[in-house]
Design a binder for these strands. Structure first.
Lengths: 288, 288
DNA sequence: TATGGATTGGAATTATTATTTCATATTACC
DNA sequence: GGTAATATGAAATAATAATTCCAATCCATA
């Protein structure tokens, strides 16, 4: 048995590629399959993998042995480890970057940190989005006469993008801004036939929470984007989304929130268009 | 057995969290362990997991059964699927999304599309950032008395976040807004001792370009974030960054722009802090 | 504090899966 | 073209792991 058994995936990969041409036919076949379908190797059984690759289980074991492992099981460990590593890498990388930035490792580290924070957040939300909530929110917003957009401070930039996108899609909307100090009046116009998108993260801007409370008491349904089920925003909301944004240097990423906000907006636009089409069909029918 | 067996990780997670308080002690123990160590569930054997969680293998199976699975094995599949999904590369994900979109998938595809666009943009910028330009921009902005932030329409949300962050860092700044129609006056206050961060992407908002022109003619240095060297913004800028944002459904991602903007802001804050410290040192020296 | 039901621990059992073995086929070399 | 070495297929076997079962324990309720 070979002394130098590849114990990490990259080494293993290189080793396989090197020997590729000196391997017997069936072994080469399983080798190619392994590099093409590493996930299958990680999770499958010897029998299932062998079947998918079109070889016998014993060939799979011989392949492992040729590489210096003492059996399929130990080869499989390498493929499993790879999945583990990959998965934790974002968090680890972010932690490393934070440490770097702390010890004053230059401005590039700051940039990398923000990129990593954004990637982490996106990665996280893509696995966590509750599809039912998403559909509920879209249905709710698509019905609304006017969509009010409510967010302060950090979240305000998301709100302004939502307002911009809704405008582009010709959906009536109102950004609740504090510039002229007329928020209370603005809010008082909202009716149960309207809807609100409210965004707030800890530490929750008191004004945002207060306005959400008032507007929900008027019977206006709220879709909330916030950071935990304990958020004061969640209690006023008909539908709410939990978005965990990674932070860097004291500033949280907005990438996941932005992606969710845009998806909501565009999906609402699409749903309205479909509904509009149906209404139009009915109209033209009544004309016949 | 329950009719509605959670077949994806998120549903499973939610289900567990819901039932959390009504579960018997040992079952709750393994439930908490499962959510905390999903990777272990995916890879371990019933015996090894049970040992790590401090329960008997049979308890682990009972836990799975309470959730509606017919045994540990089917529960484990959900945890494995999660790793598979998470791990598939963005390219693969995008390919899958296109396939889905073609067969007329629902709103989830829209969300995935925005997440993918954001990821792609981040990926792209992290390899493309010109470090020299980055340092130049930071130096330039760190010297400024007031940082003016100029952006319209889509880019306005980035500008508002920059303004928020600068404020948090106690850096004097002025967001050039059009609400009161006093932009021209606002701009006329800027002097060569100040600096501008200007953001605009094709199709460039005429107002943004015009204001950039005026302010640069006053001798105020501009740091621009835009999308190509042909951008009209680039010609007025002392330093400019090219950011290529992927778009989805007609709306471009802002994730890369946001990351760059935040990195600039925080780096400027840091540089000022360092400079302030040095000045203080010099002062105390001159007093001796 | 007694009693019934639910929960748990641990070993026995069953099932699944990896590995080995051996007969057969293929290939390379004389 | 024959022969030895190598490679492959298929089934037997060994190992490992999941599941079940039953006795012991815990807990709520009367």
């Amino acid at each position: 048995m070979d002394e130098r058994v590849p114990r990490d995936f990259e080494t293993l990969r290189t080793t396989i590629l090197e020997r590729r041409h000196s391997l017997p036919k069936r072994i080469a076949q399983i080798a190619a399959y392994a590099l093409d379908n590493p996930d299958d190797i990680a999770f499958g059984t010897a029998a299932s993998i062998a079947a998918s690759a079109g070889v016998q289980p014993s060939t799979l074991i011989r392949f492992a042995q040729q590489l210096g492992f003492d059996g399929f099981t130990s080869l499989q460990l390498v493929f499993r480890e790879r999945l583990r590593e990959r998965n934790s890498s974002y968090d680890e990388r972010l932690a490393a970057l934070r440490a770097k930035a702390e010890e004053g490792a230059g401005h590039r580290a700051i940039f990398d940190g923000f990129v990593a924070a954004a990637s982490t957040s996106l990665n996280d939300i893509s696995g966590r989005l509750n599809e039912d909530h998403f559909e509920d929110a879209i249905a709710l917003l698509a019905e609304a006469e006017t969509i009010y957009v409510l967010a302060k401070r950090r979240s305000y930039s998301v709100a302004s993008y939502i307002a911009y996108a809704l405008g582009k899609l010709k959906i009536r909307n109102q950004l609740i801004e504090s510039a002229a100090g007329l928020n209370a009046e603005m809010i008082s116009f909202a009716s149960p036939r309207d809807a609100v998108i409210a965004i707030s993260f800890s530490p929750y801007a008191p004004a945002a929470i207060e306005e959400a409370r008032v507007i929900s008491e008027q019977g206006v349904p709220i879709v909330a984007i916030t950071d935990s089920s304990f958020s004061p925003l969640a209690q006023f909301a008909k539908v709410w989304f939990e978005v965990a944004e990674a932070d860097f240097a004291g500033f949280r990423s907005l990438s996941a929130t932005m992606a969710l906000a845009m998806a909501l907006t565009v999906a609402v636009g699409e749903k309205r268009r479909d509904a509009g089409r149906k209404t139009q069909d009915l109209d033209s029918f009544s004309l016949v």
